[in-house]
Write a protein that binds this DNA or RNA. Structure first.
Lengths: 143, 143
DNA sequence: GTTCCTGCAAAAAGTTTGCACCTTA
DNA sequence: TAAGGTGCAAACTTTTTGCAGGAAC
């Protein structure tokens, strides 16, 4: 796993394990990740989590996401696949979507405007239609 | 213009004038705006530009954009209209686009996933196909 | 025994805010 | 002259880095 020129340490094991455990739709902030790590391995520093996530990001194993200002979250990359996000600004729930029609139009637009696409960022923000579910998530988040 | 409960000062005049002068595709950072303002009116502080842009943003006259980490840029709102952005990561050139097909798919997707859209963020990143033009912009930016 | 990693604490970078003084209406 | 606005500098927030001690190979 981390055997790509990098050393295998106890801290990294725990960090990577916890991060992977969450899967593709676990969008964790550094602080949340640190808190989880410290439950297992107290004493781990913020800087170690930061540097480990940077390694994963550089290796394209994780993606940095910033849905909210001043808060970077990390998501496990889903190899080969690609998806965009739909975020409820009320409860913070994050849904994922993938749409070939939009992808195609993007390529056409970029081509028309004379740009070769490297990547994109497409986020839709809104509020859950199911307010009960939204409220439940809101409460469990603040609990 | 600024006659919406707010006072009309020399500083605000200059800041707003310069900001409007740039039009919809003038994507200025606070620092760039401050530099331009100080050419006309030395002594204006960063905080004043900051607070003025915040007023404009709250009044929906300006939009805050963050294409690059740790750098907020302000864009004049184009009333009624809506557009998204295509950014060259090499020279920083910002193009705008608007696509009904994408907008429609967005609404369908959000509806399917049970979310009522409030706004969205769609940015395409890439590199200019016309490298000569890209290089010229790169040079003039560092000059 | 090197080389790399960790934890701490300090540095950066950008954004906000408190406060005393100055302007506007 | 009362309500607001300005400029300065300090406070904040989040991310990044230097360094001395400690692990991994």
């Amino acid at each position: 796993m981390a055997a790509e020129g990098k050393r295998n340490t106890r801290q990294r094991d725990v960090i990577v394990d916890i991060f992977f455990e969450r899967g593709v739709d676990g969008h964790l902030s550094l602080q949340e990740l640190l808190d989880l790590v410290q439950e297992v391995e107290p004493g781990v520093g913020f800087a170690t989590v930061y540097r480990t996530m940077k390694l994963l990001t550089d290796a394209e194993v994780a993606h940095e996401r910033r849905f909210v200002e001043g808060q970077t979250r990390y998501e496990l990359a889903d190899f080969g696949e690609h998806h965009d996000h739909l975020i409820c600004t009320r409860c913070g729930h994050i849904l994922e979507f993938e749409d070939p029609t939009i992808e195609r139009r993007q390529r056409e637009i970029a081509s028309d405007l004379g740009v070769r696409i490297t990547h994109h960022r497409h986020e839709i923000y809104g509020v859950c239609v199911d307010l009960d579910a939204c409220n439940r998530r809101l409460e469990s988040a603040s609990a």
